[in-house]
Design a protein around this nucleic acid. Structure first.
Lengths: 218, 218
DNA sequence: TAGATTGTTAATCGATTAACAATC
DNA sequence: TAGATTGTTAATCGATTAACAATC
């Protein structure tokens, strides 16, 4: 009998980066009522090699079946579990400007189990307002709030200059995960995980691609 | 005498993804009045090897000096040029909801030369409104607008279900670059470049990291 | 059973790191 | 000049692809 999950945790970053994409595609298959899929078929849709898909899945144990392929529902459940999307996460947003408000309003994340509990800002004009019924609080209340409400993820949407300071603060209050939207690399202790959304980096990459395209239209 | 720029265009994706980060760090050095930097020093700040930094820069020609290092201003100018940030780009946003409005309000991109010319939406309640003085237009006017105003980049901020349709439209109107915020992989011809900001993928990656951290706190 | 497709090992490819001659 | 640091070649490492036995 085969053990369902191999020793996870030493999976390379390259593989981890592909997992959300697998999740999206398999979820789409679910929505379309597809019940089984082979690595060959998935490879055609996703533009990867079938070999790579099988290698990737096998980092987490074999959940396919020889001669059949993968059961879509089973695969979806496994990917959900692997990504930790079978749990709920309490979040707060720090910085209730443009970006902060946009994320607060983006309800799709709630469907995936990321529950926004509060926003925080330094600006008196924003404090006391609410987005989707969720109050914007004074940053000074952060410590007290976190003590009373266990928070899994702090979403940093402050200006660049304040981001590291805010990060230090949330780390001090015991929050172990940061989703950072400020255009700067934040430094955190090794027992805190961070994921960056560097919008400007993405835009610069696009302008690089444009330049490349224009100089060499292949 | 050495040629300043090697044959660019065959640079690996791994290198290209690091370029915006180099740009940010070197800009920061400029701001702080630093005039020279060695690959060893930069490597310490950025958490890369000095070897990798030299290899990366040398994809675009040697702009360092033996025994001295790199002149910060020169390096900054080179990176600006390499990324295509010495030019201006006209942009439009399609989808003037949360995300679209947030991007429209984020003025930092204008400083880098990305000029927002218009927003487009399908919702009659939004059409006619303006953000930073830039009008939200009916999506039906897109074709006529693009004909009169040359647009370099279309920023797609529509719901998932409309993204591919909108992409097909902008491609038909001759726009060659797409910055996509919809949580879906858009298909475009090979003479169009695309860069995705998959926020949900980033969030799922974070939840993966949280799970990993909790199961194996190293 | 025969056909299909996985899981897994081996081969290849590309990216990163190390080393050092060139040279400022 | 001597010391420092690049540019570049060679060595290593890791990720991707190919191949195929296992097996449903």
């Amino acid at each position: 009998m085969r053990i369902v999950a191999k020793e996870e945790g030493k999976v390379s970053d390259a593989v981890v980066r592909r997992l959300p994409r697998y999740y999206r595609y398999v979820r789409e298959l679910m929505r379309n009522g597809v019940t089984r899929v082979s690595s060959a078929e998935l490879s055609k849709r996703m533009g990867l090699t079938a070999s790579q898909i099988r290698q990737d899945f096998n980092c987490f144990g074999g959940f396919g079946q020889q001669g059949y392929g993968y059961n879509v529902e089973e695969l979806y459940e496994q990917l959900t579990r692997i990504l930790g999307l079978d749990e709920q996460y309490n979040t707060i947003i720090i910085g209730a400007g443009n970006i902060g408000q946009a994320i607060a309003n983006y309800t799709d994340f709630e469907k995936d189990g990321f529950i926004l509990q509060a926003l925080f800002d330094i600006n008196p004009r924003l404090i006391g307002l609410a987005i989707r019924g969720i109050e914007i609080r004074d940053i000074d209340e952060l410590g007290a709030f976190v003590q009373q409400h266990p928070i899994d993820i702090a979403i940093i949407a402050t200006p660049r200059a304040k981001a590291q300071e805010v990060a230090d603060m949330v780390v001090r209050y015991g929050i172990k995960a940061i989703w950072n939207f400020a255009p700067v690399d934040i430094v955190v202790p090794s027992d805190v995980v961070i994921e960056n959304v560097h919008l400007s980096d993405s835009l610069y990459t696009l302008s690089y691609k444009i330049k490349e395209l224009r100089s060499d239209p292949d």
